[in-house]
C-alpha cells in the first residue's frame, strides 16, 4: 500500500527574497497543481508545513514562504541546490470553469496573494478566457509588497488597484484597506469574485462585495487552518462536516459562510 506520508525530494532551483521575511522557492518537481492547491513541504528533523503553490510551470513549482517558526526558519536558511521534501498537491483549487467567460475580480491581501499569483499569471497568458480581470491587491506597507515584478506586469495588462494600509511619505500609490476600493470596480451583474487574505480581511471584503449586490454564490474564498496531514486524517482542519484540506482550501462563499469554527 502506498504511504501517503512519504515525501519525495525536490531540489531548490532558485530562491528569491520578496521581503526580508518572505522568500519564493522554485523547486524542481513534476507536480502539476490546480491553481489554489497546496503542498506539504518538509525538512527532516524540523517538520512539515502546508504551503500554497504560488506558481508552477513545466518541471517546477514555486512556494512563497514567510518565516514564522521552526520549519519556515529552517527553510529560509537553505540555498539553491539544497533538497527539500514534498508531498501533494492537496485540496481543491479554484474552479476555472466557473470563471470562464465572466468578469473576474481577485481581491487579495498580504500573503493571500501567494495562492492566486499562479492563477493571475495563467490569465495573463490566456487573455481570451475571461471577460476582464480586475485586481485589488493590498499590503500593510510598501515594504511588505510581494511579487513586485509580477505586479508591474499585471498593471500593464489588467485594471489593477495596488494599495497599502499605511503609506509613508513618498509612496505614490493608494493608501487604505482593500475594502475601501471595492466600490471603484465596475462590477458586471455576473462577476465572479475571489477573496484571499487574513481572516478579517476576507470577512470585511466579502461583506463589501455583498453590499454591492454580489451574491454569495459568485464569491470564492481560500481558507487557512492548522493542518497536520493534508489527507483528511489528523482532524486539525475540520470545520463542521468539512475538512479544509480536502474540500478546501478554496470554498464557494455560499458554503464558507456556513462554516462556523
Amino acid at each position: 500500500m502506498p504511504n501517503p506520508y512519504l515525501p519525495v525530494p525536490a531540489k531548490i532551483l532558485a530562491i528569491q527574497p520578496q521581503t526580508p521575511v518572505d522568500y519564493t522557492f522554485k523547486l524542481a518537481t513534476d507536480i502539476e497543481p490546480a491553481w489554489g492547491q497546496f503542498v506539504e513541504i518538509s525538512l527532516p528533523g524540523y517538520g512539515e508545513a502546508p504551503i500554497s503553490i504560488s506558481d508552477a510551470g513545466a518541471g517546477y513549482i514555486e512556494l512563497t514562504i514567510r518565516r514564522v517558526g521552526q520549519v519556515t526558519t529552517a527553510l529560509h536558511r537553505l540555498n539553491p541546490g539544497d533538497t527539500v521534501y514534498l508531498r501533494g498537491p492537496y485540496g481543491t483549487g479554484f474552479p476555472l470553469a466557473e470563471f470562464a467567460g465572466h468578469q473576474l475580480v481577485i481581491a487579495a491581501g498580504g500573503t493571500g496573494v501567494a495562492p492566486v499569483k499562479g492563477l493571475i499569471n495563467y490569465y495573463a497568458n490566456h487573455p481570451g478566457e475571461l471577460e476582464g480581470l480586475h485586481l485589488l491587491l493590498g499590503f500593510k506597507t510598501p515594504a511588505d509588497i510581494l511579487f513586485r515584478a509580477d505586479i508591474e506586469r499585471w498593471q500593464t495588462i489588467f485594471p489593477t488597484i495596488l494599495t497599502v494600509d499605511q503609506g509613508p511619505g513618498g509612496w505614490p500609490g493608494r493608501v487604505g484597506l482593500v475594502t475601501e476600493f471595492v466600490r471603484e470596480i465596475p462590477l458586471k451583474p455576473h462577476a465572479r469574485i475571489i477573496v484571499v487574505g487574513p481572516p478579517l480581511m476576507i470577512e470585511f471584503t466579502v461583506a463589501e462585495f455583498i453590499k454591492h449586490q454580489v451574491n454569495p454564490e459568485q464569491i470564492w474564498v481560500s481558507l487557512e487552518r492548522r493542518m497536520h496531514c493534508g489527507l483528511g486524517k489528523c482532524g486539525h482542519c475540520k470545520i463542521n462536516d468539512f475538512y479544509v484540506c480536502l474540500e478546501g482550501p478554496v470554498f464557494n462563499y455560499s458554503q464558507a459562510r456556513n462554516l462556523v469554527d
Binding site: M1, P2, P4, Y5, G232
Partner: peptide, 16 residues
C-alpha cells in the same frame, strides 16, 4: 471511516 475512507487514500500505517 477516518483512516481508511476519508480523503484521497487510506492511512497506510493504520491499514497495515
Amino acid at each position: 471511516k477516518i483512516f481508511l475512507a476519508n480523503g484521497p487514500e487510506p492511512d497506510s500505517y493504520y491499514a497495515r
